[in-house]
Amino acid sequence: MSTPDEVTLKLSSSMLRHGSELPLHARETVFSLDDVSVFYGDYEAIRNVTLPIGKNEITAFIGPSGCGKSTLLRSFNRMNDLIPGARVQGTVAYHGTDIYGPDVDPIEVRRRVGMVFQKPNVFPKSIYENVAYGPKVNGIKGNYDDLVEECLTRAALWNEVKDDLKKSAYALSGGQQQRLVIARCIAVRPDVILMDEPCASLDPIATAKIEDLMGELAKDYTIVIVTHNMQQAARVSDRTAFFTAELDDNGIRHGRLVEFGPTRELFSSPSDKRTEDYISGRFG
């Protein structure tokens, strides 16, 4: 059995993604959250988050269930708008523009900020039609063959499906479906890809493929990933935000951001006791 310290040590020495060593202020920020809280009706799911997201970085949100990390992620592309009673306080600025501003069209936001979900939600269409869906609804005319090939190649799926493009997407395995969802997402040419526990329903081999893919995609996209898997956060991300669920004075649970920093630092020398407890497995 390894002690928690050994686990931390292992994570920091061998599993970290080696890419970003730049301090955040040297990078362009894509998203900048200022004092953001998200409510469902009267219930405040997550409170007062201030956080930047760096361009071409992978930012991981980790924390126990119910800490509001998925809720926060869904405020990046206004997916919370679809939930009756949900509202966002504070400022979610995308390249300097508040996406909750009065003139902002949520559809335009979602065209730039794509999303991959926990369960692979391929459409009941052919593989080809799944990838071509986004460009079609966004009014891009013409022949999609090249685009479909390019996106499937970038999602590391082309070689497996190139002869079956007309087949139903439901014929694919779970891991292939999730890569198809990623291909579908990048076909809209987004700037940011949000991933909400993208490997939660996948086996370890499929998970490894998705993780490799994330590293590749980060060259061109900014990625924010919510994960329950700390090793995954350590392996793939440049920066990590640790959230927790706390009881306030009235005994009501709500999510809080505890610590945010370069993944290497956060895992090797967390500055907050709660982070240390969580990543060493003493809690959560």
Partner: peptide, 18 residues
Amino acid sequence: VPSGLRDGAYALGSTKRQ
């Protein structure tokens, strides 16, 4: 129809009608 399909469509910039 699973709500995940709707989420997927909206996340690609679909309108309600689409």
